[in-house]
Amino acid sequence: MSAAPLSLADARAALDWYVEMGVDVAIAEEAQDRYAESAARKAAPPASLPPRAEQAERPAAPALRPQPSAAALLATPAEGACAAREAAASAASLEELRAILEAFDGCALKTTANRLVFADGTPGAKLMLIGEAPGREEDLSGLPFVGRSGQLLDRMLAAIGLDRSSAYIANVIPWRPPGNRTPTPQETETCLPFVRRQIELAAPEIVVALGGAAAQSLFRARDGIMKLRGRWLDFDVGGRPVKAMATLHPAYLLRSPAQKALAWRDLKAIRNALAD
């Protein structure tokens, strides 16, 4: 039985999902029948080998040495993490930290991203929001949370009487992973010293991790987001205790709008804490 055609609403939702996940090009204009291609290759007669005499007369081609990847040229994992810690610690201001990140070559994600996505909002604001990594729209604009997730985040802030000027927004990873893939553990560990220093220099009173990945990285937590969200956590920033909480990522809420009730509980708790 053939599947029912998608409704206009379902097709639009599917397209929005692809855009959100970073799909921005088509593989080909026409479908390719890989099964037919494989069958044709098997049916083709094997190529005849040249006579042995010709093989003996032809000098052997020199072996090609494989070229190292861009990531290998940057640093080993240990060297990249060590360099990140030293570089982050040397920043005396957010402006210096941004300049250091612009020049940092210890993370291969920099080679595939269009630009650094450092922060948005107001340094020194009481509230700092931290996501996992930029997406396609953020990579193009250089600002965090400007796509559909960012639009929802703006509405979430407005619901508790805030906007971007009354918060400071960043990501654990400041460069977009190719195709919006999940950052590797090594990429996260390399970038963590920078976002930790960013928190120290921004000096918020409350840090909110958006989504499980950001929460697990920042708070060294093992629980999933549903167990982490909505409760205050102990978080030390440069020897200073800061109130911290994890909540659901706006991208998740776009896919699961029924969970917005949980996010609203978290937002009310954040609003009450800001008022204290």
Rank of each mutant, 00 (worst) to 15 (best):
M1L: 12
S2V: 04
A3S: 03
A3T: 05
A4C: 09
L8A: 15
A9V: 10
D10A: 14
A13H: 13
A14P: 10
W17P: 07
W17N: 15
V19Q: 10
V19C: 09
G22Q: 13
A26G: 14
A31N: 06
D33A: 07
Y35A: 14
Y35S: 11
A36Q: 09
S38M: 13
S38C: 12
A39I: 04
K42D: 13
A44F: 03
P45R: 09
P46A: 14
R52W: 09
R52S: 09
R52V: 11
Q55I: 13
A56V: 15
A56H: 04
E57Q: 15
P59T: 08
A60G: 11
A63V: 15
A63E: 15
P66N: 10
P68K: 10
S69V: 07
A71Q: 10
A72N: 00
T76M: 03
T76S: 15
P77E: 01
A83K: 03
A83W: 03
E86R: 15
A89E: 13
A92M: 06
S93K: 07
E95V: 03
A99L: 05
I100E: 03
E102T: 08
D105M: 02
C107P: 04
A108P: 03
K110A: 04
T112N: 08
T112Q: 15
N114L: 14
L129Y: 07
I130W: 00
R136L: 15
L140M: 13
L143S: 11
F145Y: 08
F145R: 05
S149W: 02
G150D: 10
D154N: 14
A158D: 14
A158Y: 05
D163F: 04
R164T: 05
R164S: 01
R164D: 01
S166F: 13
Y168T: 04
V172D: 01
I173F: 01
P174K: 01
W175F: 15
R176H: 04
N180Y: 08
R181T: 07
R181G: 14
E189V: 11
L192W: 07
L192A: 10
P193G: 12
P193Y: 08
V195C: 06
Q198E: 15
E200P: 05
L201H: 08
A203F: 07
P204L: 09
P204D: 06
P204H: 11
V207Y: 04
A209K: 06
L210W: 02
G211I: 00
S217L: 04
S217G: 10
L218D: 08
M226D: 15
K227G: 12
R229M: 12
G230L: 07
G230T: 15
W232C: 00
L233I: 14
G239K: 03
P241A: 05
K243C: 11
A244V: 00
A246M: 00
A246I: 01
L248V: 12
P250V: 08
A251K: 10
L253E: 13
P257M: 09
P257H: 07
Q259Y: 12
Q259V: 07
K260M: 05
A261G: 05
R265A: 02
L267M: 06
A269S: 06
I270S: 00
R271K: 12
L274T: 02
